[in-house]
């Protein structure tokens, strides 16, 4: 009996161990310096987003990143979830021109975007994107904070990590720049951020570090837009189930009391 129990436990633990092991299995391609760990409000099982940082990060994305990086999966309406009103979202959408079908002569026309439209791609196709960016197409940023090995820590490290290359460094292709945190310590993206590059409406000083931190927070939010709702609902569900478990346990014990 007890041996069987031990066996069962071992089996379950083995399953769990292999599960946990798989979650951080992603190999990181190309040697690079280890990005220092940053404290993020969205970390951990109860993490939440600082929405003002997300909004500032959107300003960085809109004014800087969006020139080259797409964010295909997002609609302008999705921005409402970072604390904007529908009027604000509609105004943001209206500043963008998207393909609007054809006119009476059959010529393609554009129209102002609506909240239901997806973010406009900066390039017509991946080839055009690569041709305009030293031969490397800038990756789509919809899930970048999830799929980029190293996650937000490494995104922040890359954005703030540009520095004088060591004497031995030779760019592998035209336009490549040294960055110790990028894969192979080299990146095709020139330093995107500098002090004062973005205008923050909330008066936060726009230092390079602040911009990098805010845009990383925004990218993390875009990659997991329902993180906060997930954690909040999770707490409610778990508390409910714990309460139910106690009740069902008492019920079961009472039902079985005449058997043992």
């Amino acid at each position: 009996m007890r041996g069987g129990m031990r066996l069962r436990l071992g089996f379950l633990l083995g399953l769990l161990a292999s599960l946990a092991d798989i979650s951080h299995a992603m190999a990181q391609a190309g040697p690079h310096d280890r990005p220092p760990h940053q404290v993020w409000s969205f970390e951990g099982p109860l993490g939440r987003f600082d929405l003002s940082a997300v909004q500032r990060g959107y300003a960085v994305y809109a004014q800087v990143c969006s020139a080259c990086h797409g964010m295909k999966s997002m609609t302008y309406g999705d921005l409402a979830a970072m604390g904007l009103t529908m009027e604000q979202v509609s105004r943001i959408a209206a500043t963008q021109q998207v393909p609007g079908g054809v006119d009476a002569q059959g010529d393609p026309v554009t129209r102002a975007a609506t909240p239901a439209d997806h973010f406009r791609d900066p390039f017509a196709n991946p080839e055009a994107a690569a041709a305009a960016n030293n031969g490397v197409a800038p990756p789509d940023q919809s899930r970048l904070a999830l799929v980029y090995p190293g996650g937000p820590d490494r995104i922040y490290a890359v954005l703030t990590g540009y520095r004088e290359p060591p004497a031995a460094y030779r760019p592998s292709h035209a336009g490549a720049v040294y960055n110790p945190y990028a894969s192979g310590r080299e990146i095709a993206m020139p330093p995107p951020l500098r002090d004062g590059q973005v205008v923050y409406t909330d008066g936060t000083p726009a230092t390079t570090a602040q911009e990098a931190r805010d845009v990383t927070t925004f990218l993390a939010w875009v990659a997991q837009p329902h993180l906060e709702a997930r954690h909040r609902l999770g707490m409610q569900v778990v508390l409910y189930l714990l309460f139910l478990a106690v009740l069902v346990f008492l019920l079961k014990r009472r039902v079985w009391s005449d058997v043992h």
Binding site: P45, L242, F249
Partner: peptide, 30 residues
Amino acid sequence: TSKDALGLVLFALLFAAVVFFLPNVVFEAE
């Protein structure tokens, strides 16, 4: 029925923990 109910609720707790707090266990980032 009462014993299965208890097993189901405990299993649901584990299920909920993964869905709400540990989605990376089942979602492959790649």
